[in-house]
Amino acid sequence: MDQLVRADARPPSGLGRFGEYGGRFVPESLVPACDEVERAFAEAWADPAFHAELHHILSVYVGRPTPLTPAARLSAELGITLLLKREDLTHTGSHKINNVTGQALLARRMGKRRLIAETGAGQHGVATATAGALLGMDVTVFMGERDMQRQELNVFRMKMLGAEVIPVTAGSRTLKDACSEAFRHWVTAVEDSYYCLGSALGPHPYPWMVRQFQRVIGDEARAQYAGVMSSATPDFVVACVGGGSNAAGTFAGFLDTPARLIGVEAAGGAAISAGRNGVLHGFVSKVLQDEHGQIEEAHSISAGLDYPGVGPEHAYLADIGRATYVTASDDEVVAATHRLARAEGILCALESAHAVAWVLRAAADGTIPQGATVVLTLSGRGDKDMATLMELS
């Protein structure tokens, strides 16, 4: 456990290595840009004035701290104590705003005037557009054409906030391809633009930096749990995992505790259980690929988990046995969305419903024993997914 405490308290080793994962594999033209971001973040993270401004915006604009809500009826049905960390109640409706607020402040500190972002479910794009409007910065968001069709509401929200949304027609036209286009564009615009990456992946320093901006989730949840429960920490801490930012931030608050950390991937995008080591978007991690090393397409009913890799810290936590990664199918996710809505009056995002689906299954089969305590991060609200759910009804 001491190893985990130390690893979490300081930057990853070398060029952003979490064990054998991470690193920086980018075109030579982007090396200076990544170096600039790394230096700027290290300086900002050590600056009390930066933290004070970030905390102020998170408090008076984003709406932190978010509550830890007891799921009373669902708990009674399952025979456990389930508490929901409500990132769906932040301004813009997801955890993405935590990371984006930090990165946008960093970009302004670096003298950049424009933010570039990729998005899948649209929540990161909306958060980036929001931060750009707040700080007076231009925003360009790359989004797969398929995701734009199934997330029309978030596309409209981004445009309402003044962002330019560029459709990506290559490949599967989803999140992977949006990331690729955003990186290509950054190469041409590094002088005045900052790439605001939305998850705990990409070349160093992004996995480390995004986790640090998102650890407010886990730090809050740990303090809130200790304030209302008789035990210091829960038995289980659960979050959905695509690239893995909400899970990385949640787990960071509990790494030095006995809590079992559970990351729930989409069954059609389970990079940790079905992937092999490979390089994707500038970092080494578990990646879905064929026998020739070609990237395979991921599938998920949720656009935000439709990614064929996973953040390097998650691959490392899986390797050392500190976190366990499981999957949930599309059918389980839809059923979990309906059950949470009817039991607790909460419409969560389909991404978050993966975590709910696993808890429902694990409580039923005894993986979560009767009487256990569970903290589950609801990473976002479900407004954006209503059209998808209506089509299935």
Rank of each mutant, 00 (worst) to 15 (best):
T119R: 05
L392R: 14
D385S: 05
S300D: 12
R146D: 14
A349H: 06
G144I: 12
V279N: 00
F142N: 04
Q103Y: 01
V210C: 05
D331A: 15
D256N: 13
G249H: 02
Y195K: 03
I301K: 02
R146M: 03
E344C: 07
S75N: 08
S300G: 04
D385R: 05
L305V: 12
G382Q: 09
R39L: 06
R150M: 03
D290W: 11
A127F: 03
E38H: 01
N277V: 02
S393L: 15
V374Q: 10
W186M: 09
D365V: 11
P234F: 01
Y307H: 08
V237E: 07
R173D: 10
G371M: 06
E344P: 14
D306H: 08
P203N: 03
G227T: 07
G371S: 10
P70K: 08
G22V: 10
A104Y: 00
Q294T: 11
E164M: 11
A248D: 08
A7M: 11
P369K: 07
G198E: 08
T188M: 06
I295Y: 05
R276K: 14
M158T: 03
R10M: 14
T69M: 07
W186S: 10
A252Q: 01
G23C: 06
H185W: 09
I272Y: 04
L255C: 04
S273W: 01
P369D: 13
A170Q: 14
G198D: 05
R114P: 12
Q151W: 00
M143E: 02
D235R: 02
G162P: 15
I301A: 02
A252W: 10
E53I: 02
W45D: 14
P65G: 06
L82V: 08
K384I: 10
V356F: 00
G162H: 05
T250Q: 14
L89P: 03
M209C: 02
L392M: 13
P203Y: 04
I116C: 01
F283C: 15
A104K: 04
H95N: 07
L350V: 03
I295V: 15
S94K: 10
A355R: 07
F156W: 12
H292C: 06
V310C: 13
R24F: 01
A318Q: 11
V310F: 04
P205T: 10
G63W: 06
G102E: 12
G263A: 06
E191I: 00
G132S: 06
A270S: 15
Y195G: 05
Y195D: 06
G275C: 11
A335K: 15
I97E: 03
T128I: 14
A170P: 07
V375C: 13
T92C: 12
S13N: 09
P369C: 07
V334S: 04
E297T: 10
P205V: 11
D192Y: 12
P258T: 04
E344R: 15
H124Q: 13
A104W: 01
H338G: 04
S285H: 03
M1H: 12
F213M: 15
A121E: 07
F254Q: 12
K96W: 06
A7N: 11
P32S: 04
G120R: 08
E313H: 08
S379G: 08
M110L: 11
L340M: 13
G111P: 07
D306Y: 02
V326F: 01
R276Y: 01
Y21F: 15
K159R: 15
A131P: 04
P203D: 10
V326R: 14
G111Q: 12
A117G: 14
A117V: 07
R322C: 12
R6V: 09
A232M: 13
